[in-house]
């Protein structure tokens, strides 16, 4: 088995006494793509936010390459630099152009040479088809373009783990694909990723392993084929049903039986 990048053990997270994540354990190996799915409010975002210590936790431990990460970590900033996170609403810095958005953390937090990072940033922008938008400001970009910039911004930090939280949920349908293709490409490069998504087709394609979360617990996990085609738990089956639609009463000609055409 590959080296472990992330080990979550017995994680417990509460908001004002209300348990949102309950005794959750999960190990992510190098190069593995894990897709987390589950009903709204089941704690998917919270889980990702705990992983890079945007939330304090009430129990358990999260380790990154064996090193515990929490809001109390002494070297919290260095640890966070190893985790790239992409949010649903891009969260680019509106007062900076695309290039400055990307360069800020590598240059200021990692103290790398601006020239070197810029070269890398331009190459990555080229890879996501945005090489000519380096000077644009976020407000001049479409949602899909902003999200691709946000991904490049995370990549430029050389993270060992990438977190994606419903990164296409705020996008118009025709822009979803351009972003998902970037993530598929990253998966092919062997990146280690933890992905939250509501796009089931995409989940199936990109995942090495599906984690189905319900009420803050892992309800079911397994390879995507098994999970989608033959879910073991009733909850998962019920959840997957919400993505398929059927009309109870439909004839081929479009007219209900017994009804006359006018």
């Amino acid at each position: 088995m590959e080296r472990e990048v992330l080990e979550i053990s017995h994680l417990r997270k509460q908001y004002d006494g209300q348990t949102v994540i309950d005794d959750l354990s999960l190990t992510v190996h190098e190069g593995e793509v894990i897709v987390v799915i589950g009903p709204s409010g089941c704690g998917k975002s919270t889980l990702l936010r705990c992983v890079n210590a945007l939330e304090d936790i009430q129990g358990g431990q999260i380790r990154l390459h064996g090193e515990p990460i929490s809001q109390k970590s002494r070297n919290l900033q260095q640890l966070r630099q190893k985790v790239g996170m992409v949010f649903q609403n891009y969260e680019l810095f509106p007062h900076m152009n695309v290039l400055d958005n990307i360069l800020l953390a590598p240059v200021k937090a990692q103290k790398r040479a601006r020239r070197e990072v810029k070269e890398e940033a331009m190459a990555l922008l080229g890879r996501v088809g945005l090489e000519n938008r380096a000077e644009s400001y976020p407000r001049q970009l479409s949602g899909g373009q902003k999200q691709r910039v946000a991904i490049v911004r995370a990549l430029c930090m050389h993270p060992e783990l990438l977190l994606f939280d419903e990164v296409t949920a705020a996008l118009d349908p025709e822009m979803v694909r351009e972003v998902l293709e970037v993530i598929l490409d990253l998966a092919d490069q062997g990146r280690t990723m933890l992905v939250v998504t509501h796009e089931m087709q995409f989940a199936r394609a990109v995942a090495d392993r599906i984690i189905f979360l319900d009420q803050g617990r892992i309800c079911e996990e397994g390879p995507p084929e098994t999970f989608f085609d033959a879910p073991k738990t009733e909850r998962a089956e019920k959840f997957l049903k919400t993505f398929t639609f059927e009309r109870k009463n439909k004839s081929k000609s479009g007219i209900r039986p017994g009804e006359e055409k006018l």
């Binding site: 900033q77 966070r80 949010f87 969260e91 800020l104 937090a109 995370a154």
Partner: peptide
């Protein structure tokens, strides 16, 4: 609050977050 969080997630120090992300926007 997301502006703070995305800066934190990038591993910037608190001082840097204020200097480069929050204050420039607040001053505007």
């Amino acid at each position: 609050v997301h502006q703070y969080e995305s800066a934190e997630a990038l591993g910037l120090w608190e001082k840097q977050i204020y200097r480069y992300v929050i204050l420039p926007q607040a001053v505007r």
